[in-house]
Design a binder for these strands. Structure first.
Length: 275
DNA sequence: CGTTGAACCTGTTTGC
DNA sequence: TGCAAACAGGTTCAAC
């Protein structure tokens, strides 16, 4: 269920445990999971993992051989996981990529993704720069206030659509959009450009707080998200509205949480989040 | 430019 | 218990 916090947890564990390792072997179970660059796969054998970063909801591995660095971008989609395993672990259905590593703290990294939304991209430096620039807008955790304010002011669509628009702000998905809007007391259908300066300020603060707290809690494990080391996140215990239709609003206003269908499910309090 | 709905997939939950 | 429908973290494309 990777949104920004989950992808960040994945990236941090990779940094801690396999950064600097050498890629001994790269096994692809489903060629169609590699959207770009499959013919360049051989180049990666013997390369060293020199960078691990999160971009939006994706994890970007930088692999170097000599002076050259190329990239492996792992889109996780709805159900994608990167897992530390060992060659002794049995093959699990829906494992599409296995990276055998040498010199790190984990011998294998496997990409598991039953629904196969989300892909792997193998890109050279120019390719990944183009890829990232085209796909990802500003990062919610590092975007300066003034940029955020301008982005919101310049959008004529719904505020929830804005939060989830990866080319504008990269990393927020349905769970965190719902949680952020509830805490900012904003109805998901409010028009972004019509929000007051003060409201945008509140949204900015809440957005960063929710995402940062979620990272500290290891992300949200609502269905089957687990980190590479197999641990679950705990932020789902702090969810206030997501998947809670019919339950009383936690603010104690007396109303019940509603679910709006149409786009993705929106969970909100009709009293605390007015249009 | 922005919104909507469908498509892409498999697995689990829900309801009859 | 059995079966079918509904639904799920995401992205992309076409149509309006």
């Amino acid at each position: 269920m990777p949104e920004l916090p989950e992808a960040e947890v994945v990236a941090r564990q990779l940094q801690d445990r396999v950064l600097g390792a050498t890629l001994k072997d790269c096994w692809v179970g489903r060629p169609d999971i590699v959207r770009q660059g499959l013919p360049t796969l051989d180049w990666y054998q013997g390369a060293r993992l020199t960078t691990v970063e999160r971009r939006g909801k994706s994890v970007v591995l930088g692999l170097s051989r000599g002076q050259e660095t190329r990239y492996l971008v792992a889109e996780l989609g709805m159900t994608g996981l990167l897992l530390f395993q060992s060659p002794d672990d049995s093959y699990q259905k829906h494992t599409h990529l296995v990276l055998s590593l040498d010199g790190g703290l984990e011998p294998e990294l496997r990409y598991w993704n039953p629904r196969r939304f989300g892909r792997i991209y193998l890109l050279d430096r120019a390719g990944q720069e183009r890829f990232l620039a085209k796909r990802f807008g500003c990062d919610p955790l590092t975007v300066p206030w003034d940029t955020f304010r301008q982005v919101v002011k310049g959008r004529h669509g719904r505020v929830k659509a804005l939060l989830m628009h990866q080319q504008v702000i990269a990393g927020i998905g349905n769970i965190y959009a719902n949680e952020i809007l509830y805490r900012a007391q904003l109805h998901p259908y409010r028009i972004a450009s019509r929000l007051s300066e003060q409201t945008i300020r509140r949204l900015y603060a809440v957005m960063r707080e929710v995402l940062q707290d979620a990272i500290l809690e290891g992300g949200s494990s609502v269905r089957d998200f687990i980190a590479p080391d197999g641990s679950e996140g705990h932020y789902q215990k702090r969810h206030l509205v997501y998947d809670k239709a019919g339950q009383p609003c936690p603010a104690g206003c007396g109303k019940r949480i509603r679910r709006l269908v149409g786009e993705r499910s929106s969970f909100y309090c009709p009293s605390c989040q007015r249009k």
